[in-house]
Each structure stands twice: as C-alpha cells, then as structure tokens.
C-alpha cells in the first residue's frame, strides 16, 4: 500500500506539474457551472409558476428532485469528455519515455503500480468533484435540500468515474500513443453510454442485459437518493474487472516484449 501511495503521489504531482490538471479542472468547472446556471434558471421559473398559479406547471417541485438530480445526471456527460484525458497518459507516457522500465524493475507488484495509477487519477477526479461542492453548498445556504440524496449522488459519481478510470487505464496500458489512447477511451465510454439505446426495440432478455450493462442506467438510483447494493456491486465489480484486465495487459506486454 505504501508503494501504491508513492506512485499515486507521483501521478498527482505530475498532473499538476503540467497544464493538464488545470485545463481539465477548469474545463470541468466551467461546464458544470454552466449546467448549474441553466438548470437553476429553469428551476426558478418553474417554482415561480407553481407559486403564482399552483397549476399549469408541475404540482410539486423540490430542490433535490428538480435541480440537484438533473444537474448530477448532466455532470456525468462531462465525465465522458474529461476522464479520457485524465487517464490517456497514465501508461502510454511511461511506455513512450521508458520510465515504465523503472517501475517494472523496482520491487513492486503489478497490482501496486496499477492501484497507484488508479488512485492518482481518482484523486484528480475527486478534486474536480470537490469544486462542484461550492455550487451545491450555495443551494444549502439559500434553500433546504435534503443532504442524503446529495451524498448518494456524489457516491454514484465517484463510482461511475472509477469505472471510466479503470477502462481508461486498461486502454492506456495497450498503447504508447496518447492520442490513440484518449480517442479509444472516449469511443469506449460513449459505447458504454449508449449501449441501452437498443434496449427499447430489443426482446425482453436482450433488453434486460443491455440495461444491466449500461453504465448510466445504474447511476439513476444514486441520483435519486436510493442506495441499492445491486448498483454498488455492479460498479465495484466493473472497476475490479477493469483493473484486472489492466494487470493482464501489462503482463502480456512483458511476454511479448
């Protein structure tokens, strides 16, 4: 674990030593802020309507259901673009510059290296998420949202991000080229995103399978404040599987040279 932390720390330092971390955090904050303002404006108009007429608009509205939830679902869209850029260099850069030789000839297990890289990427992602607490915090200042659905929402975002990071690491471990790594990761994310679009027109079994595979489908309950072990197990096993495949990919690279 100490070794994994050493690697994670180096990863974080390396993100912040280059403009990458700042650009990504800035990009994420900008988009999240825009979504926040847009949804907030819509929410205000709706609540005004409810207040004035009591009908014509939705009958009841609350901050959790009609503001925070859509905001979090939209935030997952930003992840689709941002996380490939977080993970694309993790292995690719080490392979290109030869520093992978240092890691693989040091007394470290593959698992420690992978965990280090995973934790490093997750730390950067957590910093991005932490910025959004400012927006949510303002809602708590001026309104009275329930905190539990907010907490489960953030847990969901972390788990969902973890899945993306594990896929990103896997793809990064397969190529020396950062651009290829980033593009392939983005393509896979997008595929995981839309995999259940076919569900409506498919047969009942295929529909169930596609819905289960869909990475976003599982997020829905988190955003609603429902903590279901089924979804937690899905995300955790997804992450574990991604990291396991990364380990296999790194190992096979050794054999092939």
């Amino acid at each position: 674990m100490r070794n994994a932390l050493a690697i994670a720390q180096r990863e974080i330092a390396s993100y912040f030593a280059s403009p990458i971390a700042y650009v990504l955090i800035g990009f994420f904050a900008l988009l999240f802020g825009y979504f926040y303002s847009a949804i907030l404006a819509f929410f205000l108009r709706q609540s005004l309507q409810v207040g004035q007429f009591g009908f014509g608009g939705p009958t009841t509205i609350n901050v959790n259901q009609d503001l925070i939830r859509p905001l979090m679902i939209n935030a997952t869209v930003i992840l689709l673009f941002v996380l490939p850029m977080v993970t694309m260099r993790s292995y690719s850069e080490e392979k290109r510059s030869g520093t992978i030789e240092l890691l693989l000839t040091s007394p470290l297990s593959d698992l420690q290296i992978i965990m280090g890289k995973f934790l490093g990427a997750m730390a950067l992602y957590s910093i991005m998420l932490a910025i959004t607490l400012v927006h949510i915090g303002m809602l708590f200042m001026y309104g009275e949202p329930e905190w539990l659905p907010v907490a489960t929402g953030y847990l969901g975002l972390l788990l969902l991000g973890g899945c993306f990071v594990s896929v990103g690491l896997l793809i990064s471990s397969m190529t020396k080229n950062q651009v290829v790594s980033g593009m392939a990761t983005f393509a896979v994310f997008l595929m995981l995103w839309v995999i259940n679009w076919m569900a409506d027109t498919a047969g009942p079994v295929t529909q169930a399978v596609l819905n289960y595979l869909s990475i976003t489908e599982h997020f829905d309950d988190f955003s609603r404040g429902v903590l279901d072990t089924k979804h937690i197990v899905y995300y955790l096993s997804f992450i574990a599987f991604g990291l396991f495949l990364t380990a296999k990919s790194v190992d096979s690279e050794r054999w092939r040279g």
Partner: peptide, 22 residues
C-alpha cells in the same frame, strides 16, 4: 536502462526521492 528512465517534470531531488520510496 539504455535510456535513463527520468520523469521530465520532476526535479532531480524529487525524482531520486521517489525512486528511493519505490
């Protein structure tokens, strides 16, 4: 190794401290 495995963004001291840890 043939090409020294250095991380360009780290200072020499930081780099060696990292290597010492791993």
């Amino acid at each position: 190794p043939e090409t020294p495995p250095l991380y360009p963004e780290m200072t020499v001291h930081e780099y060696l401290s990292f290597v010492a840890r791993i």
